[in-house]
Design a protein around this nucleic acid. Structure first.
Ligand SMILES: [Mn+2]
Ligand SMILES: [Mn+2]
Ligand SMILES: [Zn+2]
Ligand SMILES: [Zn+2]
Lengths: 160, 160
DNA sequence: TTCCTTTTTGCAATGAGTTGCAAATACTTG
DNA sequence: CAAGTATTTGCAACTCATTGCAAAAAGGAA
């Protein structure tokens, strides 16, 4: 798919300098799991480059988001990042109880999106969205069959 | 509608103590505008009770939310509170550019809500929701007619 | 390579929000 | 009304995220 070299070219093309810090953060995010929290990126990056500063990680991730290399999603009150895969747009349902995160096809928000645009002229930020709630496994009385179409992964950080 | 005395009874009924701090925060929220930010509540409360501490305001608002007296909404990355009006459920569209906030009927999220419950058994938190985006006035090319049904108010705090 | 300019970094300070804890106090009971 | 107890408060310390600024370094030109 998008190789590491191609990703670097995106930075060069927009006139950004290729510092060791940026190369490492990019590698960490590219090789990491889905939705890494900032502190997780920081720890991994620091182990490869001990002088790495947390402020640099924040600035670097913000830059990567600006140029489209990574996608940001707010889960709970923390920001998480993953490499952008244009062919795999998705949203999330995040369980408030078990912190599990389930992927959700963009299809489920398309009508909502269209309605806001058509009725109010409001263009919502619905690129990569996370809605909190309670998942089927954590519901008080485990009633209700689950349909197809959702794929779970688990966050390895606590989300408040 | 719900008088101040009735609100106090809710606290008493659940075994919470009626401290001067709580009475004042409740009065401030009850008499304040929609969606007061915490620091705004703090300032008003402090002017009525100079010993008021910011931590107490945070704890008090969290308690009021727990017992249902107030409704919380995250706008940008700050929490805002307003007195709960069960007969006036609504969501918001918040403009990233001008920070204007528009009310949105719950009706627009009902289908989305139902779909998540039915297809995935996921019960989303859609009590009082705010979606960010760009409002019709702030869109690059001002195309598109605005329908009826949205009512604007302006936040008087900057939201990042 | 060396020099120059501009960007980027590391560090320290800041701000919002949360938490532990001892002192204060609201409510209960006599 | 006084005393006892459990809750609540104020304060200070702490965390997470952001920002100003001087020092470091990337990239371009000679
Ligand atoms: Mn995702
Ligand atoms: Mn509201
Ligand atoms: Zn769950
Ligand atoms: Zn606007």
């Amino acid at each position: 798919m998008t190789s590491y070299e191609q990703l670097l070219q995106v930075l060069r093309d927009e006139g950004h300098r290729l510092t060791p810090q940026r190369l490492i953060v990019l590698r960490v995010v590219a090789e990491g799991r889905q939705h890494m929290g900032v502190d997780e990126v920081f720890r991994e990056a620091q182990s490869a480059y001990p002088f790495m500063d947390l402020a640099t990680v924040y600035r670097t991730l913000r830059l990567f988001k600006q140029v489209g290399l990574v996608t940001e999603v707010a889960i709970g009150d923390r920001l998480h990042y993953e490499l952008t895969h244009p062919e795999d747009r998705h949203h999330h349902m995040v369980c408030r109880v078990c912190h599990g995160a389930f992927n959700l096809s963009p299809h489920y928000l398309e009508e909502f999106n269209r309605t806001l645009v058509n009725e109010f002229g409001f263009v919502p930020d619905l690129d990569h969205f996370a809605i909190t709630g309670v998942c089927v496994n954590c519901r008080p009385e485990s009633s209700g069959e689950v349909g197809i179409g959702s794929e779970e992964f688990t966050l390895n950080e606590d989300v408040p």
